[in-house]
Design a protein around this nucleic acid. Structure first.
Lengths: 149, 149
DNA sequence: GGAGAGTACATGCACGTGCATTCAATGCAA
DNA sequence: TTGCATTGAATGCACGTGCATGTACTCTCC
């Protein structure tokens, strides 16, 4: 049982505490976001994140669109998952996919007016949910047995 | 555009910064844990978490098993997901499911010696990965485009 | 210019997840 | 006791994800 020094053991305990808090916060926030954004605006958490990156990408310079490869690292999604997510958003009329003229392998993803509007509508709820789940401390934990029921 | 006071706007910016850091840390840790534990010990992150709860449940008092309903809230999994996860662990010989004699609707989940051994083997790697992804700051982000390739 | 390596995105597939439902057992009331 | 609502867990199903691969295009070197 004497596998660690007392010092290392307490460092490990701190690490695990940090890890479990991270898991709990993540679970409660993602769960609440998916539920709330999903039922009120038909968006999942990742869909909203992508819309938000597109809105930010259009800010400042007049660039109207982002490459898929620029988007992927910012939303913690695999390339294939992002590809399908963009397809869903396009099907919903929230973004458009256009061939990139400088490199015809790539695509330019642009927000449509409907996409911008949906984002603007969903944003206050997104912020509110985050405020409750991150700022607030009533973490309901996730899973249908505790928060979904 | 004047939808928020400056004060509220900066509070919102802080909230979003916190949220994005949470997402980034979670993604990199989960991705690394699933990859490392998966390829070296055949365990996913949630499988490991469940084994750990069982090990902790057996500590102190001599209680050899936990109810499924006790386990669920601690691992941020739905009841159905936990049910299938336990089935996978049982199939792998790491836990046993036994009828609960006091309430025959419930089941008692107990770690087998093999399960305990697998946990003991995997634990150092689990801690190491967490130390790198939480303590360290080289967050590789997740997704096949950045960390899986 | 042509061949082969490398890159960007799409797609087949397997898998884990949550929701809704189902089945069995319990608790309570009549 | 019977009858009914409730609870614990398992399962059908749809869906989002990652991995491996396919397809189209670009780049480099000859």
């Amino acid at each position: 049982m004497a596998e660690l020094d007392p010092l290392e053991a307490s460092a490990e305990a701190g690490l695990i505490a940090e890890w479990r808090e991270l898991l709990a916060r993540h679970a409660s926030a993602v769960c609440a976001l998916d539920r709330e954004l999903g039922e009120k605006y038909g968006l999942g958490m990742s869909e909203f994140e992508v819309l938000e990156r597109l809105v930010e990408g259009c800010r400042g310079d007049g660039r109207p669109a982002l490459r898929s490869s620029e988007l992927a690292p910012t939303v913690h999604l695999s390339q294939s998952a992002l590809s399908r997510l963009i397809a869903r958003l396009e099907k919903g009329g929230l973004v458009t996919r256009a061939m990139c003229e400088s490199d015809r392998r790539g695509i330019m993803i642009a927000l449509t007016p409907a996409g911008r509007e949906r984002y603007d509508q969903a944003r206050p709820l997104h912020r509110e949910v985050l405020g409750q789940t991150l700022g607030g401390r009533f973490a309901p934990l996730c899973g249908e047995s505790s928060a979904h029921g």
